[in-house]
Amino acid sequence: MAGVNIVGLSKQYTIGDHSFYALKDIDLNIDDGSFTTIVGKSGCGKTTLLRLLCGLEKQTEGTIDFTSGKETCKTAKRVGIVFQEPRLMHWLTVKENILFSLCRETKSAEKEELAEKYLQIMGLAKFKDAYPSQISGGMAQRTALGRTLCYDPELILMDEPFAALDYFTRKNLQEEMVNLFLAYGKTIIFVTHNVEEALFLGQKVVIVEGGRIIQIIPVDFPYPRSYTSLKSLGILEEIIQTINYGQKSSSLAG
């Protein structure tokens, strides 16, 4: 398990001779074993934040510290990420994809056991020998999620993983995410542009706009949640207002 402590984080990109900040002065504390959703418009910098967290990019300024119990370190031992696209290895079967992160020294008995476990959890047992080209988008994203879980990460990052899925599959997987979170209690940071999704999943909703965090809203509503009851909370409107008109107008409204 791991929490994250982000202080003064900035990321600057240079395209041609024009440079701009994708993220600017981000301070964020993520508790160990919490479910955080980050919501914002396209291009607000939320994906950049995830890419910095899992080390795919280097920050320009600021620090990211991973906390594990009382320990603090600069790099987490295991950070798993689920991308927006499944990014499966098309030459491997569903089962082999799930086991993809394991090193070659892993014993085959152990591999079988892990495969069995995660195929079961993700409901993919019937499709274990199928290739990615033969399964649906939802199945592929389940496989990707299974692959990340099999890596046994301390921190799971998810970058709009359900954005390309149809309504029913998406709802289904959202419920499963909640179940997985309740069952394994891993720290999850989930990025989405879907406000309802952010509210449905997160214990804390972080609103990002223009590369900055403009508001953090705690959602103390217990799991499992339903969309109808979330609507009655009135937070949904507040978040949409905040994203649309920035922090000032939302504080005026509420």
């Binding site: 795919l56 295991r78 798993g80 991308f83 290895m89 030459w91 993809f100 992160s101």
Partner: peptide
Amino acid sequence: KKLLEVGQSFGFNSRDKFMKIILPASL
């Protein structure tokens, strides 16, 4: 490159990246 990022996120070294991603992808 997106598949290579998957390998990177799992902490693969260059040998793993080659054997498990680049070689099979270009086979």
